[in-house]
Amino acid sequence: MISNLQRENLPSGMSLKRRDEIYGYLFIAPQMIGFLLFVLGPLIAVFVFSFQDRNLLLGQITFAGIDNYQAMFKDALFTKTLQNSLIFTAGLVPLNVLGGLFIALLLSGNLRGMIFFRAIFFLPVITSAAAWAIVWRFLLQSESGVNTFLQAVGIDGPNWLQEPNWAMVSVIVTRALKGVGINMIIFLAAIKNIPQDYQEAARVDGATGWQVFRRITMPLLAPAVFLVTVLTIIGALKVFDTIFLMTNGGPSNGTMVLVYYIYYQGFQFFETGYASALSVVLFLVMFILTLIQWQLRRRFVFDEQE
């Protein structure tokens, strides 16, 4: 034992600091190797593929320059699906962020039974996405489910999933109900983190409830609001399962979003190169939106030290 220790302390060119570093790297190696192999590798591959004419079925690969990107300008379905993705995002983000904030504010008190209501709103988050979508497909039939209730109050409900505009509304609301719970939890945690003293001090100074919310609570929640908005926008642009299971992109491509179109190009048409180029565009859209939000964050979020 002693000899071992002595041997390790021998001046073999390795200092204690250096050895610690090596151990450090060893400890993070499993995670890093996994990240490099399964995340960064494919990510770079997609960029490379996007400049190639690739066909999964033919196994053919040729360099195509920017052909794939040029083809998008002539592809009406690309424009349509990009639009759909933006509409979906524009519908989902306010519902999910404001809805999550509103519910969190309602449920942040310490009244009896609050935990029960929080659990209710969180339940859809842990439900399987597939089960959620399929159950809603049944609820949104033309002659039963939701429409039965509407009939009872004298409203003739639409054929939700078969009319292009209603189908888009349906998938947005279905998705919002599923995701609002996780945002609520993030907001709840942020609200609980605000020291009570600030609000009490404001009230002592004569602030009304709205003023307390507007001047104290809201600014302190700003970092959480930005985090949730960024995550929700990214999530909305990546939506696939809800669309796949509820509408298949229909009717008349009315709910076909960009990710679904990428899936079609890559795995139904086997045009892997073009699908990769579409993925790069989606990546850039997300990147730019996130960048814009980052800039806004600097302007509006005072609470952070940089």
């Binding site: 039939q141 033309s142 054929n159 939700w160 999933l161």
Partner: peptide, 10 residues
């Protein structure tokens, strides 16, 4: 006729 299962009905 209304005799055949219409779209949007499971």
């Amino acid at each position: 006729d209304g005799s055949t299962v219409p779209p949007g009905t499971e």
